[in-house]
């Protein structure tokens, strides 16, 4: 019925399933070196071939899915967990000092190029998956704050919010009971989009060596290591590249599909 939603859910589900499966089983040990079997093309023993150390690429992709998704989802959680309450608070006190301050802080963060600043942060704090998560999560905060504020503002003009105020409810309580449930679908869609951007950012950071550190597998570093050998063993770069593209595409389609499926009125309200 909704092809975008189905394809998106399928691709995203595949990435999640691969990550989950890697916790208990991979075809080979993703960190095991086998110099004798290096740069093998795809075959029945190594379905996606091996890299220049002889590691099984499929196994590394599965393990890499785990670190990519963990970083992206944790970053979304940071952004939504801090940004949404800030946005709700700004909307509930529209025009106040708090609202103005939050808006300027948002502008400030938006003014920095995200990936470059994330590189700066991880380079300063030391390269690790945790620091990459923090850096990406920081840039998710204003996105969720703005989305929540914009959607909440339109709700605050409705009569049922006024009725709740007549019933003596405070702004925080109204935000939690009436506003948040009604903007949840919008935030879920935003979370999906941000997760896909998080995957890209994580791949970018580990590409320059600032993400998850060896021996933890990571899609970005697999690409970085493969690029010198594209001419002699293209499959080493092809598979991690495909994994990134398909996961990002899947999450984006999922977000679009969810937007239509969760709330058909949404489009009318935003345009």
């Amino acid at each position: 019925m909704r092809p975008a939603l189905l394809i998106g859910a399928g691709l995203s589900g595949l990435a999640v399933a691969a990550a989950a499966l890697s916790l208990v089983w991979t075809p080979w040990d993703p960190a095991a070196l086998a110099i004798g079997a290096r740069l093998q093309p795809p075959s029945t023993t190594h379905w996606m071939g091996t890299d220049h150390f002889g590691r099984d690429i499929l196994s590394m992709l599965m393990a890499g899915a785990r670190s990519s998704l963990a970083v992206a989802l944790a970053a979304v959680a940071i952004g939504a967990g801090i940004g949404t309450p800030l946005g709700l608070a700004a909307a509930a006190s529209r025009g106040s000092l708090l609202d103005a301050t939050l808006a300027r802080l948002n502008d400030l963060i938006f003014a920095f190029p995200a990936l470059v600043t994330a590189i700066l942060i991880t380079a300063t704090l030391g390269p690790s998956a945790l620091n990459a998560t923090l850096a990406i999560g920081l840039f998710n905060i204003p996105v969720f704050a703005r989305t929540a504020r914009g959607a909440a503002l339109s709700l605050w003009t409705l009569d049922y919010i006024r009725a709740a105020r007549v019933a003596g409810k405070g702004r925080a309580r109204i935000s939690a009971e009436h506003v948040l449930p009604n903007i949840a679908s919008l935030l879920i869609v935003q979370a999906t989009i941000q997760a896909s951007l998080g995957i890209l950012a994580e791949a970018g950071l580990s590409y320059v060596g600032l993400g998850a550190q060896p021996p933890t597998a990571s899609w970005g570093r697999m690409l970085a290591e493969a690029q010198t050998m594209v001419a002699i063993a293209p499959h080493v770069a092809l598979f991690p590249g495909l994994a990134i593209v398909l996961t990002v595409l899947g999450l984006n389609l999922l977000g679009d599909g969810l937007r239509d499926a969760l709330d058909p009125r949404l489009r009318g309200r935003l345009t």
Binding site: L158, D159, Y160, R162, A163, A164, V166, A167, G168, K169, E177, H178, P181, N182
Partner: peptide, 26 residues
């Protein structure tokens, strides 16, 4: 108070029992 707009006066995600019990908050 009773407002004008019968469509905007109620939170679409709550049941009737919860909606009309809201003033008990006071």
């Amino acid at each position: 108070v009773v407002f004008q707009d019968p469509y905007g006066s109620f939170d679409p995600r709550q049941t009737v029992a919860r909606l009309i019990a809201e003033p008990f908050h006071l």
